[in-house]
Each structure stands twice: as structure tokens, then as C-alpha cells.
Computed example of a mutant assay.
Amino acid sequence: MTETSAPAAPATTGVTTKKAVITGITGQDGSYLAELLLSKGYEVHGFVRRASTFNTGRIDHIYDPEATHDGSPRLQLHFADLADGSRLATLLAEIQPDEVYNLAAQSHVRVSFDEPEYTGDTTGIGTVRLLEAIRQIGLHCRFYQASSSEMFGATPPPQNEETPFYPRSPYGVAKVYSYWITRNYREAYGMFAVNGILFNHESPRRGGTFVTRKITRAAARIAAGQQDFLYMGNLDAVRDWGYAPDYVEGMWRMLQAEEPTDFVLATNTAYTVKDFLQFSFERLDLDWEKYVKFDERYLRPTEVDALIGDYAKAESVLGWTPKVLPPRLAQIMVDSDVAELEASGKPYIDTAEV
């Protein structure tokens, strides 16, 4: 990848190092969050699913066995799956983390229509397995649940912490379950458990099947003469797009707050998929309308027309505001994809969807 970042030096001697667990550490958000926590002196433990191939490309650059704390690597990976509650409990009891960030999920909305049961089990029930493991072992930690703007679905924007949910996909439904079970454990057991209701957030580390990365990668390939057309579905959907590194800082801030509560993170902006196409192709002096073709296969059975967030509460309580807005976001992603092509001499293929 063209992005590079190194973890900061370990915390000062004599200062207790915080421990954090990140599920879904190999995904876009997990990798940026791991970087952030390492830069703050944390010892980070990532939970990854066992698979026949390694999917650690987003975090390989920060895994340094020499960067140690008390003789152990400051970034450690453990095989675990949200479908296995006993394994989660065993690892959490061993690690004794101060903070747990649940970012693992089947997070592709379109795929959730094809695999609704799997999505419900991992994205929904997986959360209660993790919360119950924390409760049963008596772990005193702060818990972050990655909620989603897809929970709002058909509810008219703008959407904030008080907006009713109306999910329009199996993914959105599963996230609603996770949201409410997190609140239930907070209220029933006094756990410091919060929901971060994050609107769409993107980066050069976004999986290639997500619409923004699909667009920016295609623009780079078309400009390089390696692709002729880009096939798309609904171009009129309105989204509030932000930059993933901004949003993981918001996650961390939520767990540093005095009281546990839920927050929306967004940019308060509204752009269509068509707008994002224009921003991306204009970066390379291309007219997107010459290269984009419609393909009904990319339509969802039920569409979410508009998601536009209101982050006023996060700004007031956490002091959080987004630094990168959609026009600049598209440029960052296009520039990264162009650099990737130039460095490799061939298209970079990333099949990850999480």
C-alpha cells in the first residue's frame, strides 16, 4: 500500500500501559484504530478469524515484534471468532483489556441480502456473545460497539441520536440488534458500553467492492488505460461520507468520556453517488459520464435514499469534528489508487470486504 505509518515509542517507563482489544482489526477501521492506539502508548490485541489465507495487509506495516512492552509485542494478534463465545471469554480473561472495540462484522450491505443468516449471526448475535463474555468473567473494561447509519434506513434525514430506526437491509437490522443489546447491557449491568453510530467513512484502505473504492480505483485504471468502463447501480443515493482516520479518533474519544452514552459521527454533508463519481474522475481530468454504465445487478432489493448525519452531540461533548469532507476524500482515494498503479505497474487487487 502507498500509505505508511509506524507506531509511536512505548509509553514512558513507570506509566501503566493501557490494553485494548480490537475485533475486526484487519479491516479499514481496525487498522486505523490500531495505529491511533499504538501512537498513544497502548498495548493492542487484535482478534482475527482463522482462514486459509492471511488477510493482514492493512496492519503489516505496524506489526513490529521489536516494539515491545514488558517483553511482549505492543501489537498482538489472536485467532478468535464472534461465533465462538467461549474463545472470546478465554482470551478476554487472559488479556484483561481496559478497552474493547467491537468492529468485526459482515459489513457489506449488498452482500447481506445474499447472506442474511450469516450477517445476523456475526453482525448481530456476535455482539451479545462478546458482551456476555465480558459480563461473565467480571471484566471491568469500556466497550465500544460499531453501530451504523444504515440503522436509520428509510427514516428521513437529518439523523441524530434521537432519530428512530428503520433499517432497510439484513445488515441494518443486525446492527439495530447490536445497538439495543449494547444499551441493554449498559442499563442492566452498569457496563461502560457505548454505541458509535458512524455514517459512511472511507479511505484508501476501503475494500474494493464498496462503492467509493470501486469508483476511485476505476478512475485510476481508466486513466491508465487498464479499464474501459465502470458498471454502477443507483447513482442518486445520497450519503454523508467522511474519512476513516477522523472517525476512529471519535471512537477513542467516546471511551474517554466521563459517562457512557451513544454518539453520531458524520460530516453533516449530503452528496450523491453521482457527485462522488464527478469528484473522483475530475481529479484525473476525466468526464465520468463517458465511462459509467448502468447495471441492475448492483441495485439493492430495498434502497436507502438518503443518510445525512448530525454530529452536534459529539462536537459538544467530545470536542470531535470531521477534518476531511467528501470532495477532498475522493481526491485522497484517487491519488492513492494512482500511486498504487504507478508503484506496481499493474492494478492492485484487494478482495477484502471488511
Rank of each mutant, 00 (worst) to 15 (best):
P7G: 06
P7L: 09
V15D: 13
V21I: 15
G24D: 00
G24V: 05
T26A: 10
L36M: 02
G41C: 06
F47K: 07
V48C: 00
T53F: 11
G57N: 12
R58M: 09
I62M: 01
Y63A: 05
D70V: 03
A89L: 04
L92F: 08
L92C: 06
A93Y: 01
A93L: 10
S107I: 02
D114P: 08
P116V: 05
T122H: 06
E132P: 11
I134N: 01
G138W: 03
G138K: 04
N160R: 07
P164Q: 09
A174Y: 04
V176A: 09
S178I: 03
W180T: 11
V194W: 11
N195E: 11
H201L: 06
P204T: 08
G207H: 10
T209E: 08
F210V: 11
T212K: 00
G225W: 12
Q226S: 05
Q226R: 13
D228I: 04
F229S: 13
M232R: 10
V238F: 10
R239P: 03
P245E: 03
E249P: 01
M254H: 06
L265K: 04
A266P: 15
T267P: 14
T269S: 15
L286E: 06
V292S: 04
L299D: 12
A314M: 13
S316I: 03
S316W: 07
G319F: 11
P322S: 14
R328C: 00
Q331H: 15
E340C: 11
A343M: 09
